[in-house]
Design a binder for these strands. Structure first.
Length: 918
RNA sequence: GGGCCUAUAGCUCAGUUGGUUAGAGCGCACCCCUGAUAAGGGUGAGGUCACUAGUUCGAAUCUAGUUAGGCCCA
């Protein structure tokens, strides 16, 4: 006799399919989201709710997305969708970073492959097109990951109005007095007469003249050892003799020991570790160390420049090594980055007596007009003549050359635009914000960021590149005096707003400035334009202002500062830093309330992904192989605060975890095909218990989401599905669900619980698995919103110590012990199915009432034919049940009796007879 | 070389202010079910908490150092 038709079995067509088939199904769900205009709909429906603003850090648009950018956007989407779940209005304007060197170089390569030398304007237009291609591609790819946002109107830093707003940010800084012009060493090609970027440099082996030079001590300050001695010199070693005329300081390492070595009548200062090797090199036959002092004492010593009548001062720097040279470093602030910052620290001028063609200037005194390379002989000869050349040698080493013409480059101080970090106490105010206002996740980010702000130099915002926003400064045509008049800057902003930053290159100053405009300082009426562009970090540092203030696009307007920034940990020095500077300078506030940082994506062994190793995982491919929800499941399962592992195996593991949750949802939903959530149903016993457990889960998860702890939220949901729902509750209600009468209160109670638990779980997974949540939601019975994302999960109250909970927990504890004992018993028994076994259980006086409260249901809860409870010291015995088996419910129960049904003799329990109306 | 971070079961992760036998899920082994079935249930094995030294009655946890890895800087 087949009783199947008489049972209320789950309906496989009603619920979601077991096979997720996400790569096929997700695009359909996304199309539906597009059709209902989900992003706009969500904003509209929450227009009166409090806004949560996550301001997007713009990825660079020179290629498709990769796992790093994908991971970042997914984490952002977790934040966004979880805030949505909490009932917030959640705007999100994704952004793209377009200007800068990588695109310029990619485009230049295309030109040079065709042997074309583009004009600046041609190059810029090609860069714009290149960037546009990847803005569109990345948008499509991010959308495939299930990221919600204003994809129809993302911000792009090359947008005309955006470029204009960047210019206005500059204008505001000028008005507030943060902008100044100063010198800074740049890599410079004398042959091409242009500044170069680090990436345009190749190193080549050359042989240079390396010289060891002595600097006479002029003032020993407070170092007694040196005061006592006559003829004291510091020894330096350099491979660039042409920078000797620019020498202003000698750098010592504060922790090194410096020896004073007597050679003939002279005393030489050099680092202890190198005394012997220097002696050998310069050929001292007799030398003795007469004393030594710590490097830190050298600070403030003054030496005489070996050629000119001026001082060279003792300074401290921790980049000084004991590897080569003498341990005393020749320092020319105009000709080296280290030298420059050391000079800055000691208030030295940035002396750069070399012009753009590589010839020494009048500042180089007697060497004026000499090409810098010639100094290898001229300067060296002069040093020898004055007796300060200790040694000269040919020295093979690798030296930077320009990639384009293969000619050597030099460090040369050039005029640049800066933002003053200490103006108006900016630095101090930033540090205060870091400590007092901004929340850092993880906590350690604070210290890291703090040390970067407290130690950072002024920000050089100018670059000698073609692809960027032109710095809107007019110079007097004759005087070359820069004009920082806000009126002139605003005129540029207006132009750029209309025609883009390209127009800065295309238009003449007279076309841009108001008629009859005169230089405020010089009165000149003819001008030349600045050719430098803004550092791209200036673009991205401005984004919170450009986007959230709504000047570029009214639709973007939200409260400033943003609530949260979420980026990779490399952005401490990058975007978090520049955003802070501009936000603080302009609005006196940090641009973010919270900063969340994440690590980088590696392969499964923790190695960097690289084409060479063949371990690259592509997020878009993952979507078509496994599905976006699997990728998102993976992203939620790893510890983003550290670097995260990713690979095929981990994605499969994620898939297994996903399927586990999916199946729980599937089964819960499968039992609801004939359920109407509007019906009044009394929920009691374990049904009530599981609903309350789910509420507690919700409370815990919402807290995790609030604290950006996605992994904890996902783990909690997963474990709930496994332990509470699957291993216990669903097993326990199957009999009622299948065999009770369809509309009996006992069954409706379980259905109500399933519905409630399902709703809670569906909403809880929504931030991480939005496609799956939508799929489940769309099949749930009852009146619903157009999308699961319109639902919210308010604050839930969770009482865990109720009488009911204590009873269930006790029962589960005993149950688990009985299961363990049963395993031992069954290994030596013929009967192996617990449903064929009666257990006789003795428990303590305290435990018994909890078990007895479940009455006859205890057998169902224990999946046994019967459970007999007595009071005593805890023990259990099993025996085979002798009762007949009900052919409908498959239960062995005392009340199973032979009954006539559909013309057949069958065994049925009382309950099943009633369910069949017999 | 400097600043910051990380190291716990085969895998992904928990381990609160130092305190019983270091937990979860996955995977694995064995068993059960066959009315969640390319599902579901039960039981179990599995860890020198990177290494070394120290503080302590007691250390995965605190301190110092070492090793390996990461980000940023030099």
């Amino acid at each position: 006799m087949d009783f199947k038709p008489t049972l209320n079995l789950p309906d496989p067509d009603f619920t979601i399919p077991m096979k997720a088939d996400l790569s096929q199904r997700e695009p359909g769900i996304q199309t539906r989201w597009d059709e209902i205009g989900i992003y706009g709909l969500l904003l509209e429906r929450r227009k009166d709710a409090s806004s949560f603003v996550l301001h997007d850090g713009p990825p660079y648009t020179n290629g498709p997305i990769h796992m790093g950018t994908g991971f970042n956007k997914i984490l952002k989407d977790f934040v966004l969708k979880s805030r949505l779940l909490m009932g917030h209005r959640v705007p999100y304007v994704p952004g793209y970073d377009n200007h800068g060197l990588p695109i310029e170089q990619a485009v230049m390569k295309k030109f040079s492959d065709q042997k074309i030398t583009p004009t600046t304007v041609q190059l810029r237009k090609a860069c714009r097109e290149h960037a546009k291609v990847y803005v569109d591609l990345q948008t499509e790819q991010f959308r495939r990951l299930g990221i919600f946002g204003l994809w129809d109107k993302p911000y792009t830093t090359m947008d005309f109005r955006f470029e204009a707003e960047i210019i206005r940010v500059f204008k505001r800084l000028v008005e507030l007095g943060y902008v100044y012009r100063g010198l800074r060493p740049t890599l410079w090609s004398p042959t091409a007469q242009t500044a170069l970027a680090d990436t345009e440099i190749v190193y080549q082996d050359v042989t240079s003249k390396a010289i060891t030079v002595r600097f006479a001590l002029r003032d020993a300050k407070g170092v007694p050892l040196l005061s006592r001695l006559q003829n004291v010199y510091a020894l330096i070693w350099t491979t660039t003799p042409w920078t000797i005329p620019a020498n202003l300081a000698l750098a010592f390492h504060p922790d090194n020991d410096y020896d004073v070595v007597k050679v003939g009548d002279d005393h030489y200062i050099l680092v202890h570790q190198l005394v012997d090797s220097v002696a050998q090199r310069v050929g001292w036959s007799h030398y003795e160390t007469v004393g030594s002092f710590k490097g830190v004492e050298a600070e403030g010593l003054t030496f005489r420049h070996p050629i000119f009548d001026r001082d060279s001062v003792g300074v401290l720097a921790d980049y000084v090594t004991t590897e080569d040279g003498t341990g005393v470093v020749h320092t020319a602030p105009g000709h080296g980055r280290d030298d420059f910052y050391t000079g800055l620290k000691y208030g030295l001028p940035v002396l750069c007596p070399v012009d753009e063609r590589g010839y020494l200037t009048a500042e180089a005194g007697e060497f004026v007009g000499v090409y810098y390379k010639k100094c290898d002989s001229i300067v060296v000869d002069r040093l020898a003549e004055l007796g300060h050349l200790v040694f000269s040698e040919d020295y093979p080493h690798s030296y930077p050359h320009a990639e384009r013409d293969n000619q050597p480059v030099i460090f040369r101080a050039t005029e640049q635009w800066f933002i003053h970090i200490d103006h108006n106490n900016l630095r101090e105010r930033m540090l205060e914000m870091i400590d007092q206002k901004v929340q850092w996740h993880p906590k350690s980010a604070e210290g890291r960021f703090r040390s970067m702000i407290s130690g950072r130099p002024d920000w050089c915002i100018s670059r000698q590149r073609p692809w960027g926003v032109g710095i809107p400064v007019f110079y007097g045509a004759d005087s070359r005096v820069p004009n920082l008049d806000p009126v002139a800057i605003e005129a540029v902003a207006r132009l750029v707003e209309q025609e883009g930053s390209d127009a800065w290159y295309e238009r003449e100053p007279g076309d841009i400035l108001p008629k009859g405009y005169a230089h405020p300082q010089t009165g000149e009426t003819s001008f030349v334009k600045e050719t430098d562009v803004f550092d791209v970090w200036f673009d991205s540092g401005s984004t919170s202002l450009c986007v959230l203030e709504g000047n570029v696009e009214p639709e973007w307007k939200e409260h400033w500062p943003a609530d949260t920034y979420l980026e990779g940990s490399d952005q401490h020095r990058g975007w978090f830093n520049v955003s802070m500077i501009l936000g603080m300078a302009i609005h006196g506030d940090a641009p973010y309330g919270a900063v969340v940082t994440h690590g980088f994506v590696n392969d499964e062994k923790g190695q960097k992904m690289s084409k060479r190793l063949g371990n690259v995982v592509d997020p878009v491919e993952v979507c078509s192989k496994y599905g976006a929800d699997i990728l998102r499941y993976w992203a939620a399962s790893v510890d983003y605060e550290d670097d995260v592992p990713c690979g095929d195996h981990l994605l499969q593991v994620a898939g297994e975890g996903y399927r586990r949750i999916r199946n729980s949802l599937r089964f819960l939903l499968g039992n609801l095909y004939d359920f109407d959530p509007n019906d009044k149903v009394e929920v009691a016993g374990i049904d009530q218990w599981i609903v309350e457990k789910a509420d507690c889960l919700a409370e815990v998860c919402l807290e995790h989401y609030r604290d950006y702890r996605f992994k904890e939220a996902l783990t909690a949901v997963h474990n709930f599905c496994v332990n509470e729902v699957s291993a216990f509750y669903l097993d326990a209600i199957k009999d009622r669900m299948y065999c009770d009468g369809a509309d009996w209160p006992s069954r409706r109670s379980a259905q109500r619980a399933c519905w409630s638990v399902l709703r809670t779980l569906t909403l809880l997974i929504c931030p991480i698995l939005p496609h799956t949540a939508e799929e489940v939601y769309s099949r749930m019975p009852g009146t619903k919103e157009a999308t699961v994302l319109l639902e919210s999960l308010g604050p839930v109250e969770c009482v865990m110590d109720s009488h009911l909970h204590r009873q269930v927990e006790k029962m589960l504890e005993v149950r688990s012990w009985v299961f363990s004992e049963f395993e031992t018993w069954k290994s030596s028994s013929q009967v192996r199915d617990s449903q064929d076994v009666v257990c006789q259980l003795a428990v303590s006086q305290d435990e018994a009432p909890a078990l007895l409260s479940f009455g006859g249901d205890l057998a169902l809860l224990f999946k046994m034919a019967g459970v007999e409870v007595t009071v005593g010291s805890r023990s259990v015995e099993f025996r085979a049940a002798t009762w007949d088996k009900c052919e409908r419910s498959r239960l062995r129960r005392p009340d199973v009796a032979k009954t006539r049904f559909s013309g057949e003799e069958v065994f049925l329990t009382d309950r099943d007879r009633r369910a069949l109306s017999l």
